[in-house]
Design a binder for these strands. Sequence first.
DNA 1: TAGCTATGTGTACGATTGTACTTATGATCG
DNA 2: CGATCATAAGTACAATCGTACACATAGCTA
Lengths: 179, 179
Amino acid sequence: MAERRHDPQRRDRIIDSALAVIAGNGVAGTTHRKVAQHADVPLGSMTYHFTDMDELLLEAFTRYADRIFQRYSERVLAAHSIDDLIGAVADLVHRDLVQSPEDLVLSLELYTLAARQPEFRRITHRWMRNSRSALERFVDSETAFDLDALIEGLFIHTSLDQTARPRADTERAVRRLLT
Amino acid sequence: MAERRHDPQRRDRIIDSALAVIAGNGVAGTTHRKVAQHADVPLGSMTYHFTDMDELLLEAFTRYADRIFQRYSERVLAAHSIDDLIGAVADLVHRDLVQSPEDLVLSLELYTLAARQPEFRRITHRWMRNSRSALERFVDSETAFDLDALIEGLFIHTSLDQTARPRADTERAVRRLLT
DNA sequence: TAGCTATGTGTACGATTGTACTTATGATCG
DNA sequence: CGATCATAAGTACAATCGTACACATAGCTA
């Protein structure tokens, strides 16, 4: 038998590896074996730390949503005026999101799961609620919903479209919505 | 051997069955056998009519995108004024899209594939281009991009959120964006 | 320190899958 | 009307998967 390792953060590493494998292969192409290999862990560890594939996916996407929201709220809460907010949104759409295509894949994979399974919808629920309440420091709750939706749509369409969308266009659109 | 059937539209039926199975089980849970069963067709027919699982998915989502765009453009092109357009968009978000949760699942599954595979991105490309050019009957192309993105975001967030979003809010948001 | 428990490791197994392949048959057209 | 070929049907097979399980060992606690 190979050398046994003391590895206290193994569970954490498996979760991060799961996100990496999902980003590369999609949920459909994610297997215990691929995640185990990426985490440099024997197959047996998978069933020890996670009873289910679903449990692994659930924890992975929970971590992902928290991570993305943190970046989101950092940008948004750093603003001190509506003009700042418009710039922050443009940063989100044109800098953060586009720079890492991984995030597009992972977000869409999560939405796809959420559309069919209530457990995952709880993750997106919390995510959306958090995002909106960050925006509500600047606008009323109805407008926060609209703005969050616009950011979502711009993110997806800008990422999928691939043709460089001018940042000024995004700023103009956000400004209009906030009027 | 069972009775042989003359079945000229079998290929078509398989494609529609694929969409039904995807809506119910996701792309990840879609197998040749499930699609064959739904289409009431022997397993052998799958590899005869489609060389690949990918070919089947590609044809299925191509059909789906065309179908959705047709409904979309019917709504949009029936409008004769900006006010009409605002109502048409509200219809899209609050009537068409929410009424069939299937469409949410299928759209997200398609986006998910498009995020990782260029073949599927060609489908979403064409879809978005078509949608925008319908909108360009009423607004300039930059605004068409924004509006299409807003519709997308509202569709996803309204569907996933589940809390009844007032139609008036959507109309107000669209009106702001078109100012 | 003794022993117990949490953690790590290797492997086996039944189920399911995509796909290929053989054979059969009916529609079509010269 | 007969031959040909596109289509239909059934089955086989290797690969891969999730999961279970038996066994080993290190760290903690009493």
